[in-house]
Nucleic acid binder design. Structure first.
Lengths: 190, 190, 190, 190
DNA sequence: GATGAATGAGCGTTCATTCAT
DNA sequence: AATGAATGAACGCTCATTCAT
């Protein structure tokens, strides 16, 4: 099936782009990873840039789906944060925050793409922010809390926490327990 | 003076690598930026990779010096964190977390380099951690705090906070006030 | 019928090769033009070069048939030349002197093919030459005329005349009247 | 000197493009012919297409210069035609009517380029036509002659005459005597 | 020492050809 | 027999690196 082959290429591209960056990734390696010939990629994607663009879109879509699920579950605040952490960790271990490439190599990509990705990142950020607002109104978080700052702390801390463990520590995902982190964020350092 | 010329090349390299990433950066552009001929770079650095490596080392050295200064000042905890934030922001606006390139394009560089950089990052992390421990023992932070987690939250939040403002918002550095962020981290979300 | 399919491919090839040249023509376009699948061509022809070769042969055969008809009609010299002109124009508008490709890209094709094509062109030339000789012996052309030079002038002039009108002027074939040309060739410039 | 190198590349390009056509010509071969590295060409010309374009322009300029000289000499009509023939032959043996490639592969090149080349060809044609008009007004050619048709016959015949001898016969240029041809054109076939 | 013209390995992309269906 | 998805050799072009000046 055609859709399956497309997906295989996207998965291979995700891995290779993540590992080597846009320029470091070679079409030949992506093809090899996908177990196909170099030319075949071009039946499914117009160019390297197009493939990269589609991969980003695909990654964002997956993130959105997962984030929605993570934010919409029932349960206590701690529990919900726990799910969010686990989702983010799982996602990170696949994409290693691939959108970062764009920011790093930003001059390379069309202004269009960069703008769109920033918009997307903002949208995702706002979902977390809304969840924070929600928790404030439900009395789960203190009512003088700035939702924007709180979101930055949540996202920044989780990212650092998992980034470190996955990138440097190479720890297995299911061995990572974010309970302490969540607790510390909620209670504060003081 | 030879050292001065070396420094000029490193500064040019920092800017170009930051903007375009490792592969996107061209030796010619770095030379032009430094106001010298392309071939001259090779009198000071063996190769593009070596130049990149030296640039990273140089960036880290600057960071270390600045971090030391920021962590060793006298004053209240909030004040010291404020200085840390400002330093990090200033640093970020110059290097846009350039070490990230290495993590993104990790397979490209020698294991040696990657290992050394991780070690370096760990060392920097530990300085913050020690400062946290110190603050705990002085009673400025609660004594059941996990210094590691606290450091992650501090570094992760500050990075996210400034990263967002500088990368996306393009805000002027001296207009950014981290007071709210520090307060929220310290008091917790709850 | 197999022969019909073969003919369809040849016709499609003629059009595409004429328009784009040997290298510019793509097998896929030829197949599309012929209304068949790409692979099918290879059931009828061994390779692109073979297809090109066969197409040339086919074009030459058509030319020979037409030339015979044009040269063998009864009537006054002027009339016969008129028919020759019209035939050449009609042929040109289909093949745009496709054999020229061979001469242009001569090193590309096997010496065999080039030699054979030159031989073929010579044979066609000789038919015109014989017709000239015939006209001389019948007293229709002056008897001190060099048949070879006369043939060159006839073929060269007619080719230029129609080539210009068809290639650049894009004139309709039936609007082109070679009467003046024939008259000038016969009477001379002086 | 830079101009010399540029000229060497143009000469190599002329030969390779003439021999293999636009698509058949490989940049590497042109470089090898010019005795330089592949990349060097790109210091002088932006792309293969640009090189081709420049080569055509260069060929036309040479043709124009030569044609002016040939048409402007003093002497009897026959003599002037003789010089024109020799010039055309010399030119042909270098360029083998390279502009023909454009016509053959016309869909490939920008409409701009094709239009410009046709305009150029028209201008060259008109110079011959003006020379014919001049000869008519001087009484060297009969006064009921159509200058356009006469030009076609002259150019077409000369092209065929030399084309045949050079392309097929591979005759040495200085062994070719156009006297008979000129005489036949002037006196007519009848 | 400093330069930048020259080089050629390497990559993105195309397309003639093959072969499983 | 007919197809068109898949292949990979080949080519245009880039850019890190060299070296004659």
């Amino acid at each position: 099936m055609v859709e399956k082959r497309r997906k295989e290429i996207l998965d291979a591209a995700t891995e290779i782009f993540s590992r080597y960056g846009y320029y470091g990734a070679k079409m030949e390696d992506i093809a090899k990873k996908a177990g196909i010939g170099k030319g075949t990629i071009y039946s499914y994607f117009d160019s390297k840039e197009a493939l990269f663009y589609e991969m980003i879109k695909h990654a964002i879509e997956e993130y959105e789906k997962g984030l929605d699920k993570a934010l919409n579950i029932e349960g206590a605040l701690e529990e919900r944060l726990h799910v969010l952490c686990q989702f983010h960790g799982k996602y990170l271990s696949k994409y290693i925050d691939i959108t970062q490439i764009i920011v790093m190599e930003r001059e390379v990509f069309s202004k269009e793409l960069v703008r769109e990705l920033i918009k997307e990142k903002t949208r995702l950020f706002n979902r977390v922010k809304n969840a924070v607002k929600n928790a404030i109104s439900k009395g789960e978080l203190r009512d003088d809390l700035d939702p924007h700052l709180a979101s930055i702390i949540i996202i920044g801390s989780i990212g650092k926490f998992y980034g470190e463990k996955i990138c440097y520590g190479r720890e297995k995902l299911n061995k990572i327990d974010p309970k302490g982190l969540i607790d510390t964020i909620l209670r504060g350092l003081k």
